[in-house]
C-alpha cells in the first residue's frame, strides 16, 4: 500500500493505493493520525484501494473518531464497488459521507 497526501486549500487529500489490511494499517495509522489537528478537513481518496480488511476498516473508523474529537471533518471519495459492499455488509458504511470522486468531495467540503 502507498499513501500520498496533497493539500488543496485547507483540505488534505489522502490517496490510498493498494490494500489496507493488517499489514499496512498500523503504518498508515502512524502516518495519518498526527495530521489530524483541530478543525482538519480531509478527503480519503479510495479510488485505488482495492481491498480493505477488518484492520483497515478499523483504521478508517479511528480516523473518523479522531476527527470528530478534534472538531474536524472527513469524507471518503471514489470507493470501489467491492470495498463499498464490504463496508455495507459490516455496517462500517455509516462512518463517512461518501462521494463518487475527489472533485465532488471537494465541492461538498468547500460548500460547508
Amino acid at each position: 500500500m502507498e499513501l500520498s497526501i496533497n493539500e488543496i486549500g485547507n483540505i488534505k487529500v489522502i490517496n490510498v493505493k493498494g490494500r489496507l489490511d493488517g499489514n499496512t494499517s498500523p503504518k498508515a495509522q502512524e502516518e495519518l493520525i498526527p495530521l489530524l489537528q483541530s478543525g482538519t478537513k480531509i478527503i480519503i481518496n479510495m479510488a485505488e484501494c482495492d481491498y480493505v480488511s477488518s484492520a483497515g476498516l478499523r483504521l478508517l473508523l479511528v480516523i473518523a473518531k479522531t476527527l470528530k474529537s478534534k472538531g474536524g471533518k472527513g469524507v471518503i471519495a471514489g470507493l470501489l464497488a467491492e470495498v463499498k459492499e464490504v463496508m455495507e455488509m459490516t455496517g462500517f458504511d455509516r462512518m463517512y459521507e461518501n462521494y463518487s470522486d475527489t472533485d465532488d468531495a471537494l465541492k461538498a467540503l468547500n460548500e460547508e
Binding site: S53, S54, V86, M89, T90, G91, F92
Partner: peptide
C-alpha cells in the same frame, strides 16, 4: 456475506 473476507463478526454485530 462477508464470510469470505473473515468479517462475520462485524457483519453479525452490525
Amino acid at each position: 456475506a462477508s464470510g469470505k473476507f473473515g468479517m462475520q463478526v462485524d457483519e453479525f454485530k452490525s
